[in-house]
Amino acid sequence: MPLVRYRKVVILGYRSVGKTSLAHQFVEGEFSECYDPTVENTYSKIVTLGKDEFHLHLVDTAGQDEYSILPYSFIIGVHGYVLVYSVTSLHSFQVIESLYQKLHEGHGKTRVPVVLVGNKADLSPEREVQAVEGKKLAESWGATFMESSARENQLTQAIFTKVIQEIARVENSYGQERRCHLM
């Protein structure tokens, strides 16, 4: 019987970048054309990676801006984050940088499991943020970068699989630092 692990993941980003669409596409396998601003929703899904099962609890948040105060519920007991911006909005990309800084400060540690997602990649003619910019920002954080389209179901499964892997990578790196070696 596989080991079942619980993982709480918070999805953060500016308003209208597609946070709910990504979560809904991942859990339900469908894209909704109608848009209702999210206050806060939660989704659950079991994900199998190798021999392990992960009970993924997603917290889909209301859109934040650079002045938002992140509640402790977005920090305490959270294993990882999906930070989402729209490739069609430079402002949403700038807000993500501010949100990451707040997460970093809130956690009080250097490594936070993050997957940075440039969403709405299907709207390339309207693009304001190039993939290379997203990749560079993610690298500066030691995070993973992906571009996706919730509408086209591009990489939606991979985003949430990757955040589980990032959580394990960060947890394992802390475990290695604490080990005592006798020579």
Results as ranks from 00 to 15, higher is better:
6 Y>F: 13
6 Y>P: 06
10 V>H: 10
17 V>F: 01
19 K>W: 00
21 S>R: 07
22 L>H: 11
23 A>K: 00
25 Q>N: 06
25 Q>R: 08
33 E>I: 14
33 E>G: 09
42 T>R: 15
43 Y>Q: 07
48 T>E: 14
53 E>F: 07
56 L>E: 00
57 H>L: 04
61 T>M: 09
63 G>M: 05
64 Q>Y: 01
66 E>V: 11
69 I>H: 11
72 Y>Q: 13
75 I>S: 01
80 G>V: 06
81 Y>F: 08
83 L>R: 00
88 T>A: 11
93 F>N: 01
94 Q>H: 12
94 Q>E: 15
95 V>T: 02
98 S>P: 08
102 K>W: 03
103 L>P: 00
104 H>C: 09
105 E>I: 11
105 E>L: 07
107 H>A: 08
114 V>T: 10
118 G>Y: 06
119 N>D: 11
126 E>K: 09
126 E>R: 12
131 A>F: 00
133 E>G: 04
134 G>A: 07
137 L>C: 00
143 A>H: 09
146 M>C: 09
150 A>Y: 06
150 A>Q: 03
151 R>A: 08
152 E>A: 13
157 Q>T: 13
160 F>N: 01
160 F>P: 00
164 I>A: 01
165 Q>T: 06
166 E>R: 10
167 I>S: 03
167 I>V: 07
167 I>K: 03
169 R>L: 07
171 E>M: 05
174 Y>M: 05
176 Q>E: 15
179 R>D: 12
180 C>W: 07
180 C>P: 02
